[in-house]
Design a binder for these strands. Sequence first.
DNA 1: CGAAAAGGTCAACAACGTTGACGTATTCTG
DNA 2: CAGAATACGTCAACGTTGTTGACCTTTTCG
Lengths: 154, 154
Amino acid sequence: MSAKKTTAKPIADTAALNEAWRVMHFALRAVIAEPDRILAARGLTRMHHRILFFVAHTPGMSVGELQTTLDVTKQALNAPLRQLQTQGLIELAKADHDARVREIRLTTEGASLEGKLTGEQHKLFAAAFAAAGAEAHEGWRTVMRELARGAGMA
Amino acid sequence: MSAKKTTAKPIADTAALNEAWRVMHFALRAVIAEPDRILAARGLTRMHHRILFFVAHTPGMSVGELQTTLDVTKQALNAPLRQLQTQGLIELAKADHDARVREIRLTTEGASLEGKLTGEQHKLFAAAFAAAGAEAHEGWRTVMRELARGAGMA
DNA sequence: CGAAAAGGTCAACAACGTTGACGTATTCTG
DNA sequence: CAGAATACGTCAACGTTGTTGACCTTTTCG
């Protein structure tokens, strides 16, 4: 447990590391804030957001695939899914190849909402990248990729 | 609502912005993973972590201050607080100036755990920064600060 | 002394997700 | 073709968390 005083000059000191964590939080909060408010205004939650997000990127996704992707039970998925359908944001249609499967896709309105949510996030990222400059952007990506490498990257 | 097709060359394209969001998630997950496991092994939750974290940075904090800081009710705080106390990770002592106030501080063991948790995160950050280089680190900070600026920075 | 502040605690709720158990089409297979 | 398996849907019982409300104690302060 001894605080090994590495004589080798570290690239980042403790203060910087602490700041890294703090800044990470604030940044995340900033990026999530607006989308969250928009969702809440419609009585939607993060689960709905996740659904919209994945369906937007993989139109025609089946309920089962979505379930696996989000790692939740079908029961947990069922309610939000129907609410989105009721609100006319998504559509469920039997698959041609297999009538048991229900393919999910966004309606025009659903795509619009998803775009708005994503757009809010993009705005913040774009602004930050623009303000920081292309070089900083490159550095940011590099660091983030390194960090992400430690997890179960997709 | 119209997707304004800006002809002005953006510093980041849609693909990059999408990636930014994804990478952000993975990075966060990576940084949280280990601490979470350590906590879970002791039957502790994120709330406990948050408490340890703030108390570590502000020793002698009062229950009320902590409550305000974490933005939860005293009832929600009470249970985790006592569990931490029972596990000998924190100590509650009456304040000299005001016997109504209970000052919270980490015990040696508590500080040790907090240090371990923080240490795990620092390890990842340090590794990422080291691998990415000082320049990338600088860029990373710049972008993160810009992003965080949009939120209620502390 | 009496009001106010800092805490603690019991109890009723509400949100969210989980497991378990069935029920219904639909497709696949021996 | 009959039965097993698949993809979903749904009712129900829980467990976890955090919230609000009400009440009580100790301590401070006008």
